[in-house]
Design a protein around this nucleic acid. Structure first.
Length: 425
RNA sequence: GCGGAGAUAGCUCAGCCUGGUAGGGCGCAGGAUUGCUAAUCCUGUGUUGGUAACAACUCGGGGGUUCGAAUCCCCCUCUCCGCGCCA
């Protein structure tokens, strides 16, 4: 959520940003907010005036009664005022609610380095790492490799839970856990605190951390409960300090969260629908930072660097893209995706996503920071980046490390975490 | 699930019985005074609107009673303690 004061005092900053996004609809919403807000402020002044009168009369009644005098004319006046206040108050409140709803729809202000473009085709490659592997045999898809080795059972999972779920078996389940342990150990060694968050959240904190459209398209709702399954551990980590003031001496707070992630993934189907690439449930290790506003761009690079190191250790070729205006979404001010090389699709594909949300998430959540007991408060910045989402990392490993005989070599760094196993066979 | 106790500003606690301007302490900020790692005193301390004066709002949330509700009544949420159940 943007600061209403920014919209009030510097509407052109917001307008220019929405023009960069080429978002006519949101531009119109912005103009509505500006006029609604002016309107609201006018009405607040009026109704406050009436309330001041009411409060004054109520006090006089008290004094009259204390003195044993008649207060009936005051009381009659009061009744009249009360009715007026009630109707005007209702209007003002409705207007305020409208503004709040609309302001949630206005996206974060973009960093100046975000490239302009309509969709992910216009993301800008800023770095590549590693050699793209070459193969002298016909490549199999990761789903075929896994099924042929008896390490995944998509068909039975579909029968039991529907498409988008799977049974990982044996060594592949072991690989999944090895990836989790690898990422967790790596991040803990960097000084990040491991968090196992709740896997469900209430609506109110959830509204603070995500795009409202996600309630429709992404999140699973628990029936008859005010609870949603988390789509990523980013969400419960971000909401952890909702409505709190964080002591600025404790910043930065660096977390590494681990959880399964649950997503409806409505409409998201492409090549290789079958398999692990796009699942309703997958495991993910996630990095999260709360920091002082002036430090967030430094930590944005740190988070990216952490993930790069992990993919380098796994020996997977990747590139980093600076995500463009059409693909960045509402919350982040800037976002890097790491895309790993997927040999069978013969292209890079997204495996991690590194966002600086600046104060946008924290403002919605009512998180502030300041000196302990002090008066001056700021809104901290929040950042997140995937460490490893195991489903996509497994796709990359199965396809990049596949051998002609259908076996898969285990990346060296994972072997100690799999009892020394060198080959999936 | 049952019973009890709670939720008041960054923290902590009073006020509730008996309705009439939201208080103390700690912390923090500013100031005064004395001058030496400090003490003492004064002022301020949440949100919103307003250039400001000032005003409105705020006692977990929502209703109700009342001229007037932190206070009385009803509903809900959450926390703590005990009991029950339980991996």
């Amino acid at each position: 959520m943007l600061d209403i004061k920014l919209i009030r005092e510097s509407p052109d900053i917001v307008r220019d940003d929405l023009r960069k996004r080429k978002d006519e609809e949101k531009l119109q919403i912005l103009e509505d907010i500006i006029s609604d807000d002016a309107n609201w402020r006018r009405r607040v002044i009026e109704v406050d005036e009436l309330k001041a009168q009411r409060n004054k009369i109520a006090q006089e009644v008290g004094q009259l009664k204390k003195a044993g005098e008649d207060a009936s004319s005051h009381i009659a006046q009061m009744q009249e005022l009360k009715a007026k206040i009630e109707s005007q108050d209702a209007e003002t409140l409705a207007l305020k609610e409208q503004i709040s709803k609309k302001i949630m729809l206005i996206p974060n202000i973009l960093h100046e380095s975000v490239p302009v473009g309509e969709d992910d085709q216009k993301n800008v490659e800023i770095k590549t790492w590693g050699e793209i592997p070459e193969f002298d045999f016909e490549l199999k898809s990761h789903a075929d490799i896994a099924e042929n080795l008896g390490l995944a059972d998509f068909d039975r999972a579909t029968r039991v839970a529907g498409a988008g779920f799977n049974y990982l078996k044996g060594d592949l389940a072991l690989l999944d856990m090895a990836l989790v342990n690898f990422a967790v150990n790596f991040m803990v060694n960097k000084g990040y605190t491991l968090i196992e968050p709740p896997y469900m959240m209430r609506r109110e904190p959830y509204e603070g951390v995500t795009d409202l459209g996600d309630f429709q398209d992404v999140m699973y709702k628990i029936e008859n409960e005010d609870l949603y399954l988390i789509a990523t551990s980013e969400h419960p980590m971000a909401a952890m300090f909702m409505n709190e003031i964080i002591d600025e001496d404790s910043l930065p707070i660096k977390f590494v969260g681990f959880s399964p992630c649950f997503r409806k993934e409505i409409g998201g189907h492409g090549v290789d629908t079958k398999g692990l690439f796009r699942m309703h449930q997958f495991n993910k290790v996630e990095q999260f930072i709360f920091c002082k506003p002036e430090d967030s761009w430094k930590y944005h690079e740190e988070l990216l660097h952490n993930t790069e190191e992990m993919f380098q250790a796994l020996g997977l070729a990747y590139r980093v893209v600076n995500v463009c205006t059409g693909d960045i979404g509402n919350i982040a001010a800037k976002k890097y995706d790491i895309e790993v090389w997927f040999p069978r699709q013969n292209k890079y594909g997204e495996v991690t996503s590194c966002s600086n949300c600046t104060d946008y998430q924290a403002r919605r959540l009512g998180i502030r920071c300041g000196k302990h007991g002090g008066k001056e408060k700021q809104i901290p910045h929040t950042l997140n980046n995937t460490a490893i989402a195991t489903s996509r990392a497994m796709v990359a490993i199965l396809e990049n490390y596949q051998n002609a005989d259908g076996t898969v070599t285990v990346p060296e760094v994972l072997r100690p975490l799999m009892g020394g196993k060198e080959l999936l066979e």
